[in-house]
Design a protein around this nucleic acid. Structure first.
Length: 425
RNA sequence: GGAGAGGUGGCCGAGUGGUCGAAGGCGCAGCACUGGAAAUGCUGUAUAGGGGCAACUCUAUCGAGGGUUCGAAUCCCUCCCUCUCCGCCA
């Protein structure tokens, strides 16, 4: 959420910043409402102060022996009643404005940071660096072909169990998925991350706090009879882990790593990536999440990205790093670095991690603050996938495929899987 | 699912209509004492919004919303949540 004081003081500047995302916004109307609201609040609190004075006066006079039914007390009561009526009128108007303000504020995306490159589509994303040597020979299989051959998962039966875009991993496939989750968690916790296994059903407040609601309701699965949704990413429960809290400054930064299944409707992606592990309604992800003091967020974006990259490097998976342009960053992000892994079979890079710095955007929505002495301020939050597990498996299959049909696994993974290659069962 | 209890500041806990943002304790911070520490003593210690250079001050907040009243943490109504016991269950 953007700071309403900024909208009140300089709506044009904020609108211009948000406008860099490609859609013009007009904050002048909101500014007017904010000014009205502030004026109402001023009037109301002045009246309430008067009312409070009368209340005290009546109490004191009665205590001093004044006749509760006497003219003096009665006239004070009348005055109190008069003020009360005026206050309640103002309060009602104010309440309407306040909820309008919040409703609107919640719909505006985070203004991109100064460093975020301008652009109008994903074509304007900037490649920052790449790592590893790409396999580019002809005739390589795509991951779903390999998986089918090795019997790692069953697509058709998954439709029977659920619907399309769900996957059932089998045998070595299931084992590899589990190995990857453990491997990633171990690597991150070894670096000082605190491991979290959160609920995967989250309430509306949690989704609003991290920025998925109100704008992206159609992307999430909702439980019909409860105020609960299937989480689209562990970022949601991790943000709400400290919602409505004040974290002592000396405890920051807090760095969490959470494995969770993630659920997304993938509305509007009909026909894309229909085979294999790339785009599913349910997938596994290990997520990194930082709460940092605003004075210390410098450099943290690069660090969290490096932590995600370390997994790709340990798995010997070539990738590149993109600095997403203003048109391509997510709703809550100020700036985002995407990691794209090389899929030799598909002959393309695919997003496998998205590392974002959100500034105080989520912290304001979720009311997460920190305190140093008397100074209370919003924390800054960062998140990054470390990594998307299904897509990691896809990359491993395509990268490790051998002429004899087996798949060679990276050395680091051998202790987790229990063998150095996957072979037909 | 059945029965009961309860939601007060960072925590514990008092407070059943009047100057209560709220006793007391714990914790925390500063100061004093000490060679240093412990113990002790003193002082301070919520959040949000408004005004003021500041000291400071006004308003709101005792789960949420509504009501009664000149005045509500305290009385009434509705809702939410938590806990305990029983049942069921991974």
């Amino acid at each position: 959420m953007i700071d309403q004081r900024l909208v009140r003081d300089n709506p044009v500047a904020i609108a211009r910043q948000i406008g860099r995302r490609g859609h013009a916004v007009d904050l002048i109307k909101l500014q007017v409402i904010l000014q009205q609201q502030r004026q109402l609040e001023e009037e109301r609190s002045t009246l309430q102060a008067q009312g409070n004075r009368i209340g005290k006066e009546v109490g004191l006079k009665i205590k001093d022996g004044a006749d509760p039914g006497g003219t003096e007390i009665v006239s004070l009561r009348d005055e109190g009643n008069f003020i009360k009526k005026k206050v309640s009128v103002l309060e009602n108007e104010e309440k309407i404005l306040t909820s309008q303000i919040r409703e609107q504020l919640l719909t505006y995306p985070n203004p991109p940071s100064e460093e975020c490159p301008d652009g109008s589509s994903e074509a304007d994303n900037v490649e920052l660096r790449s790592w590893g040597t790409l396999r580019q020979e002809q005739g390589l299989e795509e991951h779903w072909q390999i998986a089918e051959r090795l019997n790692l998962f069953d697509t058709e039966r998954s439709v029977r169990i659920a619907q399309s875009r769900f996957i059932t991993l089998l045998g070595q496939g299931a084992r590899l998925e589990r190995a990857l989750i453990n491997f990633m968690l171990d690597r991150h916790t070894a670096k000082g991350y605190r491991e979290v296994l959160p609920p995967v059903l989250v309430n509306t407040a949690s989704l609003t706090g991290s920025g998925q609601l109100p704008k992206f309701a159609e992307e999430s699965f909702r439980c019909a009879d409860d105020d609960l949704w299937l989480t689209p990413t562990a970022e949601v429960p991790l943000t709400s882990l400290h919602r409505d809290e004040i974290i002592p400054a000396d405890q920051l930064p807090l760095r969490y790593v959470a494995y969770s299944p993630c659920f997304r409707r993938e509305a509007g992606s009909y026909g894309r990536d229909t085979r294999g592990l790339i785009r599913l309604h349910q997938f596994n992800k290990v997520e990194l999440y930082w709460f940092v003091h605003p004075d210390q967020s410098e450099g943290s974006h690069e660090q969290i990205t490096a932590d995600a990259e370390a997994i790709l490097q340990a798995l010997e998976l070539p990738y590149r790093v993109l600095d997403l342009c203003t048109a391509d960053i997510g709703f809550s992000a100020q700036r985002t670095f995407d990691l794209e892994v090389w899929l030799p079979g598909a002959g393309a890079y695919r997003e496998i991690s998205s590392c974002s710095i959100c500034g105080d955007f989520q912290a304001r929505r979720s009311s997460i603050r920190t305190k140093k002495g008397k100074n209370t301020q919003l924390v800054h939050t960062l998140n990054g996938s470390g990594l998307a597990v299904g897509r990691t498996m896809a990359a491993l299959l395509e990268t490790g495929q051998q002429a004899d049909g087996s798949v060679l696994l990276p050395k680091a993974l051998v202790p987790y899987v229990g063998c150095d290659r996957l072979q037909p069962e």
